[in-house]
């Protein structure tokens, strides 16, 4: 059970599906990402997502390291993903 009194603020990668699709051109919530920091491999949907700041931050659900973060203005997208060692995107046949 989660700690009483502690309100978890995160969503998960599902909530970022639309924004991720805009970056990658396809839905990647089912893609498997590997965390640079701890090596955990999980679906992008399983990451913890923080969407209430100026951009989006996805963190590893195992070790809480930042995997990806990005912010978009009208003309520019800034994307940082050094916390994500690799991502395997399988396109439906």
């Amino acid at each position: 059970m989660s700690e009483p009194g502690v309100v978890p603020r995160h969503l998960d990668g599902n909530a970022a599906a639309g924004a991720l699709a805009e970056l990658f051109g396809t839905d990647i919530t089912g893609a498997m990402g590997t965390c640079t920091a701890c090596g955990n491999r999980a679906a992008m949907a399983e990451t913890h997502a923080y969407v209430d700041g100026p951009g989006v931050v996805l963190r590893c659900h195992a070790c809480d390291s930042v995997l990806m973060r990005w912010a978009t203005s009208r003309r520019t997208t800034w994307l940082e993903m050094s916390g994500l060692r690799s991502i395997e995107i399988t396109v439906a046949p």
Binding site: N14, G18, D27, I28, T29, G30, A43, A45, E46, A92
Partner: peptide, 9 residues
């Protein structure tokens, strides 16, 4: 609207 979205859930 934008979607449908999601390939895991």
């Amino acid at each position: 609207v934008r979607g449908p979205l999601g390939s895991w859930f």
